[in-house]
């Protein structure tokens, strides 16, 4: 096992452990052709975010409540991917 392989293994280990951090956020994808406005309440702060058409936004590291454009609400805890289709949300 050459040292080159060890270096690569080291880098691999570091990289995967880092990506684990990023994996816990939730992502919202706007599949419609027009922008939508969502309300996101995270850490007790209510924010308005505008997602453009076909845009993906990463939010919610620690869990949040969202309000869709059509008035429906949802709670996310991280790791979900939400798709907005026809102003309604589909949560995986």
């Amino acid at each position: 096992m050459s040292s080159k392989m060890m270096k690569i293994a080291l880098i691999a280990g570091v990289a995967t452990s880092l990506t684990a951090f990023a994996a816990s956020a939730a992502s919202i994808e706007n599949k419609d052709s027009e922008p939508h406005t969502l309300f996101v309440t995270e850490d007790g702060v209510k924010n308005e975010i505008i997602i453009g058409a076909n845009e993906i936004v990463t939010i919610c590291q620690n869990g949040c409540f969202i309000t869709m454009p059509n008035g429906d609400r949802a709670a996310l805890s991280g790791g979900e991917s939400v798709k907005i289709v026809d102003s309604a949300a589909v949560i995986n």
């Binding site: 869990g63 949040c64 429906d72 709670a75 805890s77 309604a88 949560i91």
Partner: peptide
């Protein structure tokens, strides 16, 4: 308690798309 709130919310949320 905050975690519980989110958990409850996550429990309720999937029902809405079904209703819709």
């Amino acid at each position: 308690l905050e975690k519980q709130l989110i958990e409850r919310g996550v429990e309720l949320s999937p029902r809405l798309p079904q209703v819709k």
